[in-house]
Design a protein around this nucleic acid. Sequence first.
DNA 1: CAATCTTTGTGCACGCGTTCACAAAGACAT
DNA 2: ATGTCTTTGTGAACGCGTGCACAAAGATTG
Lengths: 213, 213
Amino acid sequence: MPTVSSEELAAAAGVNSAKLRKDFSYLGSYGTRGVGYDVEYLVYQISRELGLTQDWPVVIVGIGNLGAALANYGGFASRGFRVAALIDADPAMAGKPVAGMPVQHTDELEKIIEDNGVSIGVIATPAGAAQQVCERLVAAGVTSILNFAPTVLSVPDGVDVRKVDLSIELQILAFHEQRKAGEEAAADGVVPPVAAKPHRKGPDGDVPAVMPA
Amino acid sequence: MPTVSSEELAAAAGVNSAKLRKDFSYLGSYGTRGVGYDVEYLVYQISRELGLTQDWPVVIVGIGNLGAALANYGGFASRGFRVAALIDADPAMAGKPVAGMPVQHTDELEKIIEDNGVSIGVIATPAGAAQQVCERLVAAGVTSILNFAPTVLSVPDGVDVRKVDLSIELQILAFHEQRKAGEEAAADGVVPPVAAKPHRKGPDGDVPAVMPA
DNA sequence: CAATCTTTGTGCACGCGTTCACAAAGACAT
DNA sequence: ATGTCTTTGTGAACGCGTGCACAAAGATTG
């Protein structure tokens, strides 16, 4: 029986082995003392807990470049997601195949959601259309929304929204890039604009808490 | 002179006003006691610290659906990012206009990066090509990489990589969706599969620490 | 100019998550 | 069967970030 120890997994993942064992114990995944965790059982437990063993039908609304990219993205199927439908407001798109699936018109939205028991919707429309689409999704029974449109959606209680802003990640890179440049300049004896007057150091001594590492 | 107090900002952002003041004090942004912060100066300070006032030329490699979506994304320009070039390995794409800009062939990669002083690269290629593209970017002088390809990139020290996995956000939604369903079932007296044997509760009592809220 | 009022900047304490460290459990060898 | 060795599961301690609370600063008013 193939097994792994918490120590091996921790080293591979770069985390503390005790934390890993605590997290596993939360799942109720019993390991065997002196041996480790049964790999197969562990994979199953984690998959189940994360919802990977379930079938999650999702609809993608707004089949522009981003919507098409999402429809073609291979990572969904392997994680239990099934693209139930591609929906777009443009009548010219209707019937057009994207990722081997015909695009359907927004008029069909409610019917599609009810017929497929969809509870997760992806919004990849322009910002202007997002709120309206959101409301129709929610009214039709969707309770989780992944929003790629650059707008903050307002939803009733009980509905989860996650907003993905593609430029935020770039922002973070630029922030670090800037401080790389600043450090070099400092090493050269030039005062960098950013660190010109470090009035006070943050709690971690360098990076403000609001900025992800 | 228009001003804001930390209290107002904190209420608007839904955070603690003391934390907000601490973060501001890190920036060296002096407020005026009894008055608050000068809005204009504050905006400038934060923009500068975050790198929004700088010009960040970026290249996007891999102009498929996702690359095109990124090229068309409006949120970049307003945050100091300038798309210096779109690069693709397909010779048929070369010269084709995307987002009002001709796609250039991978052969030009090194020259483009050096000519434009690019230090940030975006990889939107298929998984198979990502590592190779990454190495060429790094060799040409790029020190920050935003990776959309579903692969873990290995890079030398001093190079930052941020990986964006579009399915992770869906995963998180599905996780919460699952526990919503579990709670309903529990309320109905049915034992949900997830919470069937909660051997041990996590530190926060419910959600394991590895799962974002 | 003195008194009062508002809001900042920050020391201090509390709480939470991570890590340490070890007893208990089970495998494996003798 | 007994002892040894490995690895789990978890209580306890440590450290860090968040929030409280207040003194200092400056504006504003009489």
